[in-house]
Amino acid sequence: MSDSATIAVVRRFYDSKGDPAVTAEVMAADIVWDITPGFPGGGVYYGLDSVVNDFFGPLFGRFDTFYAVGEEFYGDGDHVTALGHYQGTTKTGTSVQVRFIHLWTLRDGKLARLRQAADSLVIDRVLNG
């Protein structure tokens, strides 16, 4: 895939704001989802079902809204680096913005791996005081 085609797949994921249908279309069934320790649900998840049920399910359960906003994208073959922020509102009504960097690997036009780094302290303070 060209750099612009791989970036388009990543952008589509962000633009969907967590739409389950889009998530299922753009993610490989065997995706590896690596989330920074200290971030809610931090750890490594293997497979689309685990990402959706074990990571997104508990995370989204703590927020009224929560989604990633991609701001800058850099492609290099099957790799895309995305800089952006998470935007959310907790169940108690507190708004939060948390910066992230996502390192994506694509395979056969689908998201096959995510390595995330984010400011986990900001989100921890919003969720846990």
Rank of each mutant, 00 (worst) to 15 (best):
L83I: 14
G88D: 06
D76H: 11
E71R: 12
Q87R: 13
D78I: 00
G93T: 08
G70E: 00
F73P: 07
A68K: 08
V69L: 07
D76Y: 08
H79V: 12
L83H: 15
V96A: 03
G70I: 01
E71W: 04
Y86H: 02
V69P: 05
G77K: 11
T92G: 10
D76K: 11
L83W: 13
V96M: 11
T89H: 10
G88N: 06
H85C: 04
G77W: 05
G84R: 01
T94A: 15
G93M: 00
T89V: 13
S95H: 15
G93A: 05
G75V: 02
V96Y: 00
Y67M: 04
T90M: 08
G84F: 03
V96K: 09
L83Y: 14
E71L: 01
G84D: 12
L83G: 03
D76V: 11
F73A: 05
A82F: 05
T90A: 02
T81Y: 06
G84V: 01
G93P: 11
G93N: 04
S95C: 05
Q87N: 10
H79I: 10
K91N: 14
T90K: 09
T89I: 01
H79D: 07
Q87F: 05
T89K: 12
E71S: 02
V69Q: 08
Y74W: 14
E72N: 15
D76E: 14
E71T: 09
F73L: 11
Y74I: 15
G70W: 01
S95A: 14
G77Y: 06
D78S: 13
G70C: 11
G93K: 01
A68L: 08
A68V: 04
D76Q: 13
V80E: 00
T92V: 13
L83S: 02
H79Q: 14
F73V: 07
D76F: 04
Y86Q: 06
G93I: 11
V69H: 08
Y67H: 14
E71H: 09
T90N: 01
G70Y: 08
T94M: 13
G70T: 00
Y74D: 01
K91A: 12
G77T: 07
G93S: 10
G75P: 02
G70A: 04
E71V: 00
D78M: 00
T90L: 05
T81M: 14
G75A: 11
Y86N: 03
F73R: 02
D76W: 03
T90S: 12
T89W: 09
T89G: 04
A68F: 07
